[in-house]
Amino acid sequence: MTESATGVDTKPRAPGGLVRGTLRTLRNEFTDKERRLGYILVTPAIAIILAIALFPLLYAIWLSLQEIIINQSSSFVGFQNYVDMIQDPDFHSALINTTVFTVLSVSLELVLGMAIALALNRAFKGRGIARATALAPWAFPPAIAAVMWRLMFQDQVGGGILAYLIRSSGIYTHPILGSDSALIVAAVLVDVWKTTPFMALLLLAGLQVIPQEVYEASRVDGATSWQQFWRVTLPLVRPAMLVALLFRTLDAWRVYDLLWVMGNRQLNSLSVYVYNGVKISQLDFSLGNAAAVFVFLSSIAIAFLFIKVLGTRAVD
């Protein structure tokens, strides 16, 4: 017991071939007191995941293959709901809005977050205060952040400071809350405001483990700050950056509350589409379920893409 607790895993190799060895290891897993305790302690957590995530997910997949009329019979229709979904103009707008929102917000957050992380990475007076204020909006509910920014975007009223500034500077002279595209840009701004500091903190953590000697060596070799950033900092901060990017992208991809509140229920996203299908108009229940499965599968595809193409471990 002390052996395994110190980290030396001594699995006995059975002489009688692979099958007997496996069986013995398996039996060991449950007879060894410490191993058994390990399984017992993680059981509640695993039970919650199986019951509240996995089972409902399988149920959603099953529902997406049915034609369901609430309170009436249901019948198996194969992939018909998916075909209907792909032909639905509302689904198109949801997909486009979500893609635009995700690409814009995540790339802005990455660039700004990196700049802020580089700034915070040097010692200066007031760093603690800068870091602390940066974190505050991150803890706000997105729905409340949307309410706050909606007030500032109100056209031609005393509280609508941003609408006033934008209008008087001539950047955009129409009511911002009246147009879907303007609303999405506005929602991107809110998301950038709310999440860039968090992105910066994740990147900062990555920057802080880069040894100072690496910079000194490159300076001796005559590298400019710019070269130093591209050749030294960026490659070394890459793992932390990819984790942050993956996390943010999947978060933006399932955006619901921000767009729902910013657009006063009128702005479509994939999650809003699912919600409208399964909750609001129960006629589209099956369609909503197909979209729910689509959101799940596309999230997996995005994660897979990040891990394969950009090549790193997503979860440590």
Partner: peptide, 28 residues
């Protein structure tokens, strides 16, 4: 504690962070 499925269990729990909540609202 050392147990065989420690790695997979940890991955499974952490994977929930990436799970889109909207996928399960209808079944729930």
């Amino acid at each position: 504690l050392k147990f065989g499925l420690r790695g997979p269990v940890l991955s499974m729990i952490l994977a929930v962070a990436f799970f889109p909540a909207v996928a399960i609202i209808a079944p729930l």
